[in-house]
Design a protein around this nucleic acid. Structure first.
Ligand code: ZN
Length: 389
DNA sequence: TCTATTTGACCCGGG
DNA sequence: TCCCGGGTCAAATAG
């Protein structure tokens, strides 16, 4: 098995387990890979090159590449959601819709792994080329603010989709070393992904400004209904970063920054229909005048504040949660993960040097793989360490 | 000249 | 009512 280095493995909780025989709170999970961001956050102003860089142009500085990677990571997060849409059965989709209001949070941590290409298939949506070509998330974003949030040690950046009238926004928190601390998407795009035109790609800000640069655009993916992207549900997406070593058989995990391990679950209520609240944007009067608070502007701009709004979040998962990992057979590597006190046995299937699938065994013994039809419970693969889970 | 980012000020809901 | 803090605006700035 060949491990791809610097990749993130995101594990998404897609829905609650509905197997009849299962009374326990287990879930269905699906995973996807993304590259591990390495860029350092540089709070410096005006460092970001605004000019979009033609795809493929990047072969340049490592720094650029790193930046791109971060962006891609984000993109994948979002794309994963798309993927999700495809993979699920109608039933699942309904389930998702039910929760659509909830914020989507994805956690990640680091692990090692291989093939960057990831599970590519599913993700083909996004990336496609192994080569860089950042696809970011395929949408164009404009940064409209940055702020140091109180509870967070990292600055939070605010982005808006640049598409006309598209209400989608995203908040990105990134650690100084480039780790994605959290990404939250709100709303759903009301337009298809923009075509990858080298020109005119509004900075895809995937990150703090400086990184914005070079973006190569991507979007290659089939259109997939992006309409669903943000509406997906999960509040508990968890991600693992797999780190790795090129050919080692056993992944070695490490924790670059001692990341956050908190997996936050928005309170989420599932109800609520996801209609984006229309924001009535009225011409606002300029606010920035003198300190005197002027009468409030009269615009009533709806805010997507509640957690039931569509959104997604990326949260790092500490490596501690990956309690064990090792290769069990020719094309499988197992690892044990502890997510919210739920023990998951992850199995990375690797065929032809490509990771083709990942499945998890929840502590209740139910086994779910991305493609597993609802209710079907494939035999539980035996985990080498099963004795001590 | 144009466009995107930076960044401090402002808005506004919650406590 | 005041204060706090997250989110947003928009002038200034940079490329
Ligand atoms: Zn959009």
């Amino acid at each position: 098995m060949v491990y791809c280095s610097d990749m993130f493995l995101f594990i998404n909780k897609t829905k609650d387990c509905q197997a009849e025989a299962c009374n326990k709170p287990c879930f269905c999970w699906r995973a996807f890979f993304t590259e591990k961001p390495k860029v350092l956050y540089k709070p410096m102003a005006k460092l970001a090159p605004r000019k979009p860089i033609p795809l493929l142009e990047n072969k340049g500085s490592a720094a650029s590449d790193q930046q791109r990677e971060i962006a891609e990571a984000e993109a994948r997060v979002q794309s994963a959601n798309e993927v999700k849409q495809h993979d699920f059965t109608a039933e699942c989709q309904q389930s998702l819709l039910a929760k659509s209001q909830q914020e989507k949070r994805i956690v990640n941590s680091t692990i090692v792994l291989e093939s960057t290409e990831e599970v590519a298939q599913s993700q083909s949506l996004i990336n496609t080329s192994t080569v860089d070509r950042p696809s970011y998330d395929g949408y164009n974003w404009r940064k409209y603010g940055q702020k140091q949030v109180k509870g967070s040690e990292y600055p939070r950046s605010y982005y808006k989709c640049t598409h006309l009238k598209c209400p989608v926004k995203k908040k990105v928190e990134r650690s100084y070393d480039g780790q994605i601390a959290e990404i939250v998407y709100r709303g759903e795009h009301n337009h298809p992904k923009p075509q990858p035109s080298k020109r005119n790609q509004p900075a895809i800000c995937s990150d703090t400004s400086k990184e914005t640069n070079k973006s190569a655009w991507s979007n290659q993916h089939p259109q997939t209904s992006e309409a669903y992207i943000c509406r997906t549900e999960n509040q508990n997406d968890v991600g693992l970063t797999i780190y790795s070593a090129s050919s080692s058989k056993v992944p070695c995990f490490y924790d670059p920054i001692g990341m956050h391990s908190s997996v936050r679950n928005p309170g989420d209520s599932a109800e609520g229909n996801k209609r984006l609240e229309a924001t009535c944007v009225e011409p606002k009067i300029k606010r920035r005048k003198i300190a005197g608070q002027s009468n409030g502007a009269e615009g009533c701009e709806g805010k997507f504040i509640s957690q039931n709004r569509d959104s997604q979040t990326l949260i790092p998962l500490t490596v501690k949660q990956i309690t064990e990992a090792f290769q069990s057979s020719d094309n499988k590597t197992n690892f044990l993960v502890d997510v919210n006190n739920v023990k998951l046995v992850g199995i990375l299937f690797n065929i032809a040097e490509r990771i083709t699938d990942i499945s998890f065994v929840v502590d209740d013994g139910c086994f779910r793989s991305r493609e597993s039809p609802e209710g079907e419970i494939p035999p539980v693969p035996e985990a080498p360490w099963s004795g001590g889970m």
